[in-house]
Each structure stands twice: as structure tokens, then as C-alpha cells.
Design a protein around this nucleic acid. Structure first.
Lengths: 222, 222
DNA sequence: GACGTAAGCTTACGCTGTAAGCAAGTTTGC
DNA sequence: GCAAACTTGCTTACAGCGTAAGCTTACGTC
């Protein structure tokens, strides 16, 4: 056994797994491939990691920990908008992560911290517990949904117009008249064809603010 | 070769695949298993279906076709709310479908029909092409995100209070104070802990309506 | 009857996650 | 100083996956 090689460790395994996923997606993250990447046989990894699920949970928490959160919430709407944008940005760097994140229950420390920050900001802004809970769930549903759709969509926003005009003939019949016309609008450059994440996020935030202001205050006793 | 057995066909293969996925999820849907289910070897399926991806695309479109759409839109907000609720209901019957739907670009006829209906309803209600496009993308981001989170979450809404009180001790420290308090609120039955899909959907719809009413009309020439 | 074609079967390849057991190096207890 | 215990990594093996290639059998048409 060559002692020249740096010894394995859970940390080193997870770091290698993360870099593997980042460069080749989930498909590239197999135990054998991971071992090869570390100069080791696949089974050796099991000394440092319970199984592949533990690897996935580990790198997911590493990704979530990259989401930037301010020290103190400040203005709640700005904080919530920032939170959503930051999550989208991080997930864009790790596009393999969101599908995994949604398909398993994640209770890593970074995720808990992320949620706790959110609840704190909403409570500090006067939301009831019920409304705060509904609020973060609604925001996350939208943010994750937007992110997943965006990352799975095969066309870059810059190519929308070109792609639209190239595929216009596929919608030529009158079976899908509105899609055909929308495609024409995009092809002719009449509208960019892609909402920013803040479009829907601000709709939700404005709506939440109105609910907070009309809801009877039901703050729990101190 | 026993001629007593009904012959295969693309339709029969897809129907069997759908029932297999419904009863055992994506894991149960393997070509070998599918063949066994039809009393046939796995490789025989390839006479009727290009490959496994074609099977997935096929059953996804069958699922999307189940989403109920009214003949004519009527009140646009009601139609959009109905559309989201109907999608959620269908996906609840086929919980394996949403992750698949989001991970591949779906252009089956049912999906096109679904989108075309939506665009038509929004245009009929006076939305510009740009806003109509943003609107359906935003609604779908939320609906899919909500659905995915809901279906992946391992706890049934009816068990929230019980589960919360059983796991309260895990949040005992002061690292996640707000989550701890929220968990206490749920455990003690102070709030149900689960927003309906219409909660966020109505926030979005109200916001869209306001945008429509304030946006300068930029209808394209007839 | 011959022949083309279609349906289904057999075999095989390279891939997956991981259970079981082994070999070698390191640490600990006396 | 030395043996026992523990840690680390490797080897082999198994059951499963999607599907390429080639084969057998049955049927329709001339």
C-alpha cells in the first residue's frame, strides 16, 4: 500500500464527489468513478462513508451552505428577495443539485440554518407563525420550481428568438394557435421570452405583505 | 410461440408501463419487469418502442392528458386556479411523474394543448403576449414546485402535529430557535402547518391581475 | 411451395451499488 | 518489546440495469 498517497477521509471523499458532480452531473457520480478519481478502489470509500446516499446528502449540504445569507435580516422583503436570488445563483453553479434536493428529505445543518433565518426574518417583520410558515413554503415552492424549470430547459435565454424562428414551422397548423402566435412574437423579437426569478418572487412577496397587513394579529404570548 | 396471448402493441406496452409506474414508482419500471408484466422477454418490447426514454415520454403524455381543462376558459382567474388544482390532483395520483416531467423537455401533444389553453385564457382576459408568457411560466414554476415538495415530503398533513411533537427534542438547542418554536406551535395544534396549493396560487393570480391592469396596453395589431 | 417480413427470444456486454472476506499497516496495552 | 486490536484499503462476487446483435418461428402474398 503506497503511503505516499494522502489518506482518505470523509471530507476528502465528499469534496471529490462534489467536484465530480459539478463537472459531469449526477451520472458521473458513481462509486467506482469516485474511487478512481481519488486513486482508490470503489469499496474503500465505504470505510469513510456509509453508502452512496450519505455521499449525496453530504454534497447537497455543501451546496446549500454556499447560499449567501446576511448576518441580520434588515428589510424583510429585500432579505427574502436576496434569499431567492442567492439560491438560484448557487443552484445554477450546481445544476445537478435541485432535482436531488427535491427528491429526498434534506435535514442537513445548512438547510436548517437557511430555513431558520427565513422564519426569523418573517417573524421579525410581524408575520404570525402560521403566515410565516405558509410564506416560506410558498416562496420555496416557487424558487425551486423556477430553478428546476430553468435548469432543465435546454435553450439559453440568448437563443430564444433564434430557436423560436427555427421551430416555428412545427406549430404551423391551427391546433395550437396561441403557442404559434407566441412563438412568432418571440421570433420577431417583440418580447424576450423569459421572466427573471424576481418576477414571480415579487408577486408573492407583495401578496404576503398584504396578507400580513390585513390578518388579525395573533402573535403568541411572549 | 403461443398465439393465445394477445399480441403486443405500442399502446399495450405504454399502458402496462403506466400501471407499473403507478403501482411501484419509477424503480419498478424496468424493461425486464415491463416485459415480465406482459408475459414477454424484455427485448421484445423494442419492436414496439424505440427505447426506454420513449416509454417514459409516452406515459408522461398520458398523465398530462388526464389534467382536466374546461371547454372554454370563462373567468380567467377561476380557470387558472382550476388548472393548477387539476394538475396537482392528477400528479398526486401519479407521484412518480413530476420529477420525470421536470427533468426532460416535454413536447407531447397533451402538454402543448395544456399550454395553449392557458395562453388562450390569458390573452382572452386582456394580457399582453409578454405578460401572458411570464404568467404561465410563473404559475407553472409554482405549481410544479409545490407539487414536487408536497409529493416528496414523507409526512402526511394529518400527522404533522404528532410528528412535530415526536421530533421536537431534535431542535432542543438554540441553534435553530425559530424552527424550534414553529415546531412547538405545530405540535400544540396552533396551526395546521400546511398551505393548500391555492394559497400561493392566489397570491400569484392577484399579482398578475394588478400587473395587467397597470401595464400600458401593448396589444399587437390584429 | 417459395419468399419477404414481422414478432419474439437468446445471448452477451459493460455498467451500477454493495455484501463478504482478506491483507497489510498502525495503534494500544502490558 | 511484543502481541493483540483496530483501521484502512483491496479483491471477489452477486443481482440488477439498458440495449446491441443475431436467431427462430409464424404468417401473408404471390
Amino acid at each position: 500500500m503506497p503511503t505516499s498517497r494522502a489518506p482518505l477521509s470523509t471530507r476528502r471523499v465528499l469534496q471529490a464527489a462534489l467536484s465530480l458532480a459539478d463537472s459531469g452531473g449526477t451520472d458521473a457520480l458513481t462509486m467506482r468513478h469516485l474511487g478512481r478519481h481519488l486513486g482508490v478502489e470503489a469499496m474503500s470509500l465505504y470505510r469513510h462513508v456509509a453508502n452512496k446516499d450519505a455521499v449525496l446528502d453530504g454534497i447537497l449540504d455543501m451546496v446549500v451552505s454556499e447560499i449567501d445569507l446576511p448576518e441580520r435580516p434588515g428589510d424583510w422583503k429585500a432579505a427574502m428577495r436576496h434569499r431567492g436570488v442567492a439560491a438560484f445563483r448557487v443552484f445554477s453553479l450546481h445544476p445537478w443539485a435541485p432535482p436531488l434536493l427535491m427528491s429526498r428529505t434534506n435535514t442537513g445543518p445548512s438547510m436548517l440554518r437557511y430555513i431558520d433565518f427565513t422564519l426569523g426574518a418573517l417573524r421579525g417583520a410581524g408575520f404570525s407563525w402560521r403566515l410565516a410558515d405558509y410564506a416560506w413554503n410558498t416562496m420555496d415552492s416557487y424558487v425551486y420550481g423556477y430553478t428546476l424549470r430553468r435548469l432543465a430547459f435546454p435553450i439559453a435565454p440568448a437563443d430564444y428568438a433564434e430557436t423560436a424562428s427555427a421551430h416555428q414551422h412545427l406549430l404551423a397548423g391551427d391546433r395550437y394557435p396561441h403557442m404559434a402566435e407566441l412563438t412568432r412574437q418571440v421570433a420577431e423579437g417583440h418580447h424576450p421570452g423569459d421572466p427573471d426569478i424576481t418576477f414571480g418572487l415579487d408577486l408573492i412577496l407583495d401578496g404576503l405583505e398584504r396578507l400580513r397587513d390585513t390578518e388579525p394579529t395573533d402573535l403568541t404570548p411572549p
